[in-house]
């Protein structure tokens, strides 16, 4: 068994043993989807933009992935507090591998949550434009998840207490979600918001997932992919650098 596999498995086991995490992981976005989707559907439709439910599902999938990924770094803080981190840090394997196995575990969990939500959306009446694009949707979900988890791991490596961690995350990531194109179409917003959405990498994740699910895109899939890949590389370097620097 390889080191990456066993650390991945550890994350999966811990997740599958915690009922509350499994339930909360998709109850919250489900509530969003119902409230926003049904609540705003008529407003959206009367302004001639089609079904808001169709429009919002990609955004809510991004939200599910983002929120489950951004708190993933809390695992590192717990591992510091419960002492297990020492066990991995002194092991004769590179810290890159340790970080990679754990991050892959986190990304798998986020993906499971994102896909579960997608299935629920279908049950509620959501219809993807073309089923053959779904694997591509999953690739973009994975990239987004890995990027956010790496960032979150980096913060978890630097910060030692949970409150500070939650504060930093709330401060940095939640605005990124609300200021992205997740909840509104970019062509119909004031210029200031448009500019913010343009420099916000989350917009490109939303755009890519929206393109592959409902065939609507603002930037084009290639631009989306390039921006996401760049973000992923940058955040992974940040995360693994911070992780290598941990002292306990």
């Amino acid at each position: 068994m390889s080191v990456i596999y066993i650390l991945w498995l550890r994350q999966i086991k811990r997740f599958s043993r915690s009922g509350i995490r499994i339930v909360m992981g998709f109850v919250q976005p489900l509530v969003y989807m119902l409230a926003l989707g049904y609540g705003l559907n008529s407003v959206f439709q009367s302004s001639g933009k089609g079904s808001y439910i169709q429009f919002i599902v990609p955004g809510i999938i991004v939200q599910t992935i983002m929120f489950s990924s951004m708190f993933w770094g809390a695992n590192i803080i717990w591992d510091k507090q419960f002492g297990f981190l020492k066990e991995t840090l002194v092991a004769p394997v590179s810290r890159m591998k340790i970080m990679f196995g754990s991050v892959l575990g986190g990304a798998t969990i986020s993906l499971i949550q994102g896909i579960t939500l997608f299935i629920v959306a279908i049950i509620l009446g959501f219809r993807p434009y073309n089923w053959t694009y779904i694997p591509l949707t999953i690739v973009f979900m994975g990239m987004l998840s890995l990027a956010i988890i790496s960032f979150s791991a980096g913060i978890g490596a630097v910060v030692n207490d949970m409150q500070a961690f939650v504060a930093v995350n709330n401060f940095l990531l939640i605005p990124l979600f609300f200021l992205s194109s997740a909840l509104f179409p970019l062509d119909s917003v004031p210029t200031a918001m448009k500019i913010i959405a343009y420099v916000n990498p989350i917009s490109y994740a939303v755009d890519a997932i929206r393109m592959t699910l409902i065939h609507q895109s603002h930037f084009g899939l290639l631009t989306d992919f390039t921006v996401l890949l760049g973000t992923l590389v940058a955040l992974m370097s940040f995360g693994s650098y911070r992780f290598r620097q941990i002292q306990v």
């Binding site: 550890r10 086991k13 811990r14 043993r17 915690s18 419960f82 002492g83 297990f84 020492k86 066990e87 002194v90 092991a91 004769p92 394997v93």
Partner: peptide, 17 residues
């Protein structure tokens, strides 16, 4: 890290496993 093994003074197990 390839040279040594260690038993720490304080906890270092994974409690959930």
């Amino acid at each position: 890290r390839k040279v040594f093994g260690i038993v720490f003074q304080d906890a270092s197990l994974d409690d959930e496993l």
